[in-house]
Amino acid sequence: MNRKSLLVSNRHSTEICPKQISRIMDFNFENELKGKIALVTGGTKGTGKAIADRLLKAGAKVIITARNTPEEPSDDAYFIASDLSKPEGTKNVVEEVLDKFGRLDILINNMGGSETPGGGFAVLSDEDWESSLQTNLLAPVRLDRGFLPGMVSQGDGVIIHIASIQAKLPLYDSTLPYAAAKAALVNYSKSLSNEVSPKGVRVLTVSPGWIMTSSSSRMMERIAESSGGSVEQAARGVMDALGGIPFGRAAWPQEVAELVGFLVSPRAAYLTGTEYVIDGGTIPTV
Results as ranks from 00 to 15, higher is better:
R3F: 14
S9C: 11
R11K: 07
I16Y: 12
S22M: 10
N28A: 11
F29P: 03
N31P: 11
N31V: 13
E32S: 06
K34T: 00
G35I: 07
A38Q: 01
A38T: 02
V40Q: 08
G42H: 11
T44V: 06
T44P: 01
T44I: 02
K45S: 07
K45H: 04
T47F: 06
A50D: 03
A50P: 00
I51C: 05
A52Q: 11
A52D: 09
D53L: 13
A58H: 09
G59M: 06
I64C: 11
T65L: 09
T69W: 08
T69N: 13
E72M: 11
T90W: 10
V93I: 04
E95V: 09
V97A: 00
L98N: 01
G102L: 05
G102E: 01
D105R: 05
D105L: 06
I108S: 08
M111K: 15
M111T: 13
G112W: 03
G113L: 03
G119R: 07
G119Y: 07
A122Q: 15
A122I: 12
D126V: 14
S131G: 06
S131L: 14
L133K: 08
Q134D: 13
N136D: 01
N136L: 06
L137E: 01
L143I: 04
D144L: 11
D144N: 13
P149G: 08
M151E: 00
V152E: 10
V158K: 11
L169T: 10
Y172G: 08
T175W: 04
A180N: 07
K182V: 11
V186Y: 01
V186K: 04
N187P: 08
S191G: 14
L192E: 02
E195M: 15
V196E: 01
V196A: 04
V201T: 04
V203Q: 00
S207I: 06
P208G: 04
R218G: 08
M219G: 12
M219H: 15
G229W: 09
A234S: 10
M239E: 07
A241K: 14
F247G: 12
E255T: 06
A257D: 03
F262D: 00
F262V: 05
S265M: 06
P266D: 08
A268N: 02
A269D: 10
T272H: 02
E275A: 09
E275R: 14
Y276L: 07
I283F: 12
